[in-house]
């Protein structure tokens, strides 16, 4: 947890500096509030670094011998994020109905779901259920893309 605390504190400090200096471009009235809190965030980031150095075991669980290392990078999450970005870019043009079953099937496959029949059923079922609920029952239009005149 120590390493992630340092990374978190440094990221937040960088964000605080960005908000502070960007705020210089605003009128005095508009800049005071965000700049005050940007400085507060900077101060807290420094405090977190100092605290982590002084109390490295603060977040240690009583039952555990070592502080559990956070596993942020996980292949499955990475692939899902990648698929999601591609899906959103394509959905913008092709629409929800055409892209969603493919995306869901690909996502389930990416996370090692190998029951083909269930995979197809879940992908199609979820797409149809969401379309019926939002488009027809609630009257909220879903992104239609090339099928704009279908409903």
């Amino acid at each position: 947890m120590q390493k992630s605390n340092y990374i978190f504190a440094l990221t937040m400090a960088a964000l605080a500096l960005l908000f502070y200096f960007w705020g210089n471009a605003f009128s005095e009235d508009a800049s005071q509030w965000p700049q005050f809190f940007a400085l507060a965030l900077l101060l807290l980031s420094i405090l977190l670094i100092v605290d982590t150095i002084l109390k490295p075991n603060r977040e240690k669980d009583d039952e555990e011998d070592e502080v559990a290392k956070p596993q942020i990078y996980e292949k499955k999450v990475f692939y899902s994020a990648l698929l999601l970005i591609v899906y959103l870019l394509i959905m913008n043009r092709l629409g929800f109905l055409l892209t969603t079953p493919i995306f869901l099937a690909a996502l389930l496959w990416a996370i090692n779901y190998r029951f083909i029949t269930k995979l197809i059923t879940i992908s199609l079922g979820t797409t149809i259920a969401i379309t019926i609920i939002f488009q027809f029952l609630l009257g909220v239009p879903i992104p239609q893309g090339v099928l704009a005149n279908l409903f």
Binding site: A9, M12, L15, A16, F37, A40, L41, L48, D51
Partner: peptide, 12 residues
């Protein structure tokens, strides 16, 4: 401190 940082992040 982490709770506070998250709060200030939210304010910003």
């Amino acid at each position: 401190i982490k709770g506070l940082m998250a709060g200030v992040f939210g304010i910003l």
